[in-house]
C-alpha cells in the first residue's frame, strides 16, 4: 500500500531529474542507509564512502528515466548499490578487509580490555561469517538489523513477498550458524 510519504517521495523523484533541490532531498533521506548497506558489505569506511558517492552519481544520471512500478525509490538505490558492491568484490577478487572493531568496542557493555578484546573478536568473527553469505542474505540482515525494517518493507525493497523474506531469514540464520561453527572448528584445528 502506498503511504503519503511514498507519494511525496515519488513526486520528489519525478522532479529530481530537473530540480537539484529535489534530488538533494532524496539524497538526505537515503544517504545514511545506502552508506550503511555498503559499509557492512565491504567492511571499509573509505570504500563505503567511495561507493556511496558512485551510487548517488549514478542515481543522479538516471533518475530522469526512473519509472514508478510500485517499488520504493530506496529499492532502486539498493539495486545500484548491490551492483556496485558486486563489481567492487569482483574487481578486487579478494576478501574484504575487516575494520569494524571500532564500533564493536563502542557498543561493548564493559570497559575491561579483555572483555573488549573478546567482544571485538566475536564481532569480527560474526561479520566475517555474514560476508560469506550470498549477497541477498547479507542485504536481508543489513535491512533487518541495521535499518530495522519489517519483513514487509524488506520484501518491497528486495522484490519478494513477506513470506519469502521470513523463510529466507530462517535459512540465513541456519547458514550463519553453520558458518560460525565451521570457522570455530577451523580455528580450533589451527
Amino acid at each position: 500500500m502506498m503511504t503519503a510519504r511514498d507519494g511525496d517521495e515519488m513526486e520528489l523523484v519525478r522532479r529530481a531529474g530537473l530540480d537539484p533541490e529535489a534530488f538533494g532531498e532524496l539524497y538526505n533521506r537515503h544517504v545514511g542507509r545506502i552508506y550503511n548497506y555498503i559499509y557492512y558489505r565491504t567492511g571499509d569506511y573509505q570504500d563505503a564512502e567511495d561507493l556511496t558517492a558512485r551510487v548517488f552519481q549514478r542515481a543522479l544520471h538516471h533518475v530522469a528515466s526512473f519509472q514508478d512500478q510500485g517499488v520504493p525509490f530506496s529499492a532502486w538505490l539498493y539495486r545500484i548499490a548491490h551492483n556496485l558492491v558486486a563489481n567492487w568484490h569482483r574487481d578486487r577478487s579478494r576478501r574484504p578487509m575487516v575494520s569494524l572493531e571500532d564500533h564493536a568496542i563502542e557498543t561493548g557493555a564493559s570497559s575491561h580490555p579483555e572483555v573488549l578484546a573478546m567482544a571485538a573478536e566475536q564481532n569480527r568473527l560474526l561479520l566475517e561469517a555474514v560476508r560469506q553469505l550470498p549477497a541477498d542474505r547479507q542485504q536481508l540482515l543489513i535491512l533487518k538489523f541495521v535499518e530495522r525494517q519489517s519483513n514487509a518493507e524488506i520484501g518491497d525493497i528486495m522484490g519478494r513477498t513477506e513470506g519469502a523474506i521470513k523463510s529466507l531469514y530462517h535459512r540465513t540464520l541456519n547458514a550463519l550458524r553453520d558458518q560460525i561453527k565451521d570457522s570455530g572448528e577451523v580455528r580450533r584445528r589451527g
Binding site: G32, N36, T52, H103, T107, L126, L127, V130, L141, V146
Partner: peptide
C-alpha cells in the same frame, strides 16, 4: 546480530 549490526554514521 543485534549487538554487531548497528547503524554507522557517515
Amino acid at each position: 546480530l543485534e549487538r554487531s549490526l548497528v547503524p554507522v554514521e557517515p
